[in-house]
């Protein structure tokens, strides 16, 4: 994919959140997107038509992360109220609330079968919650981190979580190993490449780092943006050709994956870009910002 195909033109602006939008995520097939923010709501959108579909209200404090299952039937969300909420998408009811984190929960993800929700919290722990049983106790607590866990990714067999202690750790369930990759800088966000072989970690020294997961070696560093104090997302494009991420000055950056040069950058928001999510198939991207808007960008 050439740089020309990068989504840089604004297709829609989704406005409904009051206050900062903390995360925006496409669903599995990219038809819908979810957003959550400081106004304690989760909102479901059709970003392509700019439609606001549904609002999920139940959180007592800001909602920091949201994730939807592959079949779009369930949501999970987390936030400042120290709970992980498990929602039914259609009815908007909360099916379960998982309590156990000792402080704010930063990130949450479903596993492939939507049977487990894994959450990462400020309490330095990653917890796995069972969606199948009625138990609201965590089925696994991982507390080897030494600082707030900011971001989490799940694969079929692994739990990967990045922490402010400068590490991201891979917990391989299949072989029962924990692999800790120390980057020396607080890790803000991690995201997997689409082939699953690399991890992109956003560090608080305004650098994105791409690491090979099998060997743990640093493949590339991406610089130019500002990321010093906010939790900001980064991701790879659907073709794994570019790396994209927001900046604290409201810009969105695109880097070439291999050359690590800034291919493109444009001002997307008036304030910090908290979250970016790339469409799984098309050249489309959404970005959320502290200014309360969600931008839909298309090529």
């Amino acid at each position: 994919m050439s740089a020309a195909n990068l989504p840089r033109t604004e297709a829609n602006v989704l406005r409904a959140h009051e206050g900062a939008v903390l995360a925006a995520r496409f669903n599995a097939n990219g038809e819908y997107c979810l957003s959550c923010g400081k106004d304690r709501t989760i909102r479901l959108w059709n970003p392509h038509r700019g439609l606001h579909i549904k609002t999920y209200k139940s959180h007592g404090r800001e909602v920091r992360d949201v994730h939807v299952t592959l079949d779009n039937s369930k949501l999970c969300s987390c936030g400042g109220d120290r709970q992980v909420f498990y929602w039914d998408v259609a009815t908007g009811r909360v099916i379960r609330k998982f309590r156990g984190h000792d402080s704010e929960v930063n990130a949450v993800k479903f596993n492939e079968y939507a049977s487990v929700v894994a959450s990462a919290g400020y309490d330095r722990s990653v917890r796995a919650w069972d969606c199948r049983s009625h138990s609201t106790e965590p089925i696994q607590i991982i507390d080897t981190f030494s600082d707030s866990v900011m971001s989490i990714c799940l694969t079929k067999t692994e739990i990967i979580a990045g922490s402010v202690d400068g590490t991201f750790r891979t917990f391989d369930i299949r072989i029962g190993r924990e692999i800790s990759d120390d980057l020396g800088q607080p890790v803000n966000c991690i995201s997997l490449s689409n082939d699953g072989n690399c991890v992109l970690a956003s560090c608080l020294d305004s650098t994105l780092r791409l690491l090979d997961r099998s060997t743990g070696e640093l493949l590339q560093e991406y610089k130019g943006h500002t990321c010093k104090s906010f939790k900001m997302d980064c991701c790879l494009t659907n073709t794994d050709a570019h790396v994209t991420g927001g900046s604290e000055d409201g810009y969105i950056y695109f880097w070439d994956l291999v050359d690590a040069n800034v291919v493109s950058r444009f001002r997307a928001h008036s304030s910090v870009v908290t979250s970016v999510s790339y469409h799984p198939k098309d050249d489309c991207m959404i970005s959320a910002s502290v200014d309360g808007t969600i931008g839909v960008w298309k090529a």
């Binding site: 596993n111 079968y113 487990v116 696994q140 067999t157 369930i173 029962g176 924990e178 690491l211 060997t215």
Partner: peptide, 29 residues
């Protein structure tokens, strides 16, 4: 320090049996 990072370490980690079950994996332990 440049050379030091990224630094990889490996530990033993024991997943809960139920977690393995939910991930549809065989418990290594």
């Amino acid at each position: 320090t440049k050379a030091m990072y990224p630094k990889r370490e490996e530990f033993q980690w024991r997943p809960a049996p139920i977690l393995c079950k939910r991930f549809d994996l065989i418990d290594p332990y």
